[in-house]
């Protein structure tokens, strides 16, 4: 297995990938108990939902902002609505799902705090994966080039990026503490998806997956 391709493409694609499963998806699937009720917020074309339905037999739902993603997902028989994490999560009743998943999306929301609050309200547990802006390569790009960093995960120019609320793992964990959210599990992914022991994660992790619940 080679490392994930280091392309400077967009983070969010709507083409259903036939290639390898995203590393954070594997971890999310691992964290979810079989037969549960799952809401995937920002589900793109429904790839993760499909994995969850196949591997864990979940009752899966999705919300996706892009119409192209919604079309693909619904045409594949998944329950997905066109909607916006920033506004539409308010509609859902509390504890309606066993898990609410937000994969690689929190940095693109207008109000990450409100979204995070909603995730642990709607779900008994929330699973959040996010890119770590404290990753050493990102720090080096800014330090040495004096330019906004771009990685395979965060490939946009600063003026077109949907990622308006990037944070480091320390920043994210700090927000969880402020909101009274318990980090039950944290899984760290190093360069190209390699799993790391959590040694200096804020420096060495390229991304992380959190299992969260309300205190």
């Amino acid at each position: 297995m080679t490392a994930a391709p280091r392309i400077l493409g967009p983070l969010r694609t709507v083409q259903r990938p036939s290639g390898p499963i995203r590393d954070d998806f594997r971890m999310i699937v691992d964290l979810i108990e079989p037969g549960t009720r799952v809401l995937d917020v920002g589900c793109e074309d429904g790839r993760l939902l499909e994995l969850l339905v196949e591997a864990k037999g979940v009752d899966g739902r999705g919300i996706e902002l892009s119409m192209a993603g919604v079309h693909t997902a619904v045409s594949h028989g998944l329950s997905v609505i066109q909607g916006d994490a920033d506004t539409d999560l308010n509609d859902y009743p509390s504890a309606a799902f066993d898990y609410v998943v937000l994969s690689q999306t929190i940095q693109a929301t207008r109000d990450p705090r409100g979204v995070l609050d909603n995730l642990v309200r709607i779900g008994r547990r929330a699973i959040v994966s996010l890119p770590n802006f404290g990753y050493w390569r990102i720090r080096m790009q800014l330090l040495l080039n004096g330019r906004m960093p771009r990685t395979w995960q965060l490939g946009h120019e600063w003026w077109e990026t949907p990622n308006i609320h990037l944070c480091t793992l320390t920043d994210f964990e700090d927000l969880c503490t402020r909101l009274g959210i318990v980090i039950e599990t944290r899984r760290i992914l190093g360069r190209g998806g390699a799993r790391r022991t959590p040694l200096m994660p804020n420096l060495l992790a390229e991304q992380a997956v959190y299992l969260l619940s309300r205190r």
Binding site: M67, V70, I81
Partner: peptide, 18 residues
């Protein structure tokens, strides 16, 4: 209608066609 269905956590898909 989608918002009302979400409020009862119904199983719902919604697509707007161009």
């Amino acid at each position: 209608i989608v918002h009302a269905l979400n409020a009862v956590a119904a199983n719902v898909s919604f697509v707007e066609i161009e």
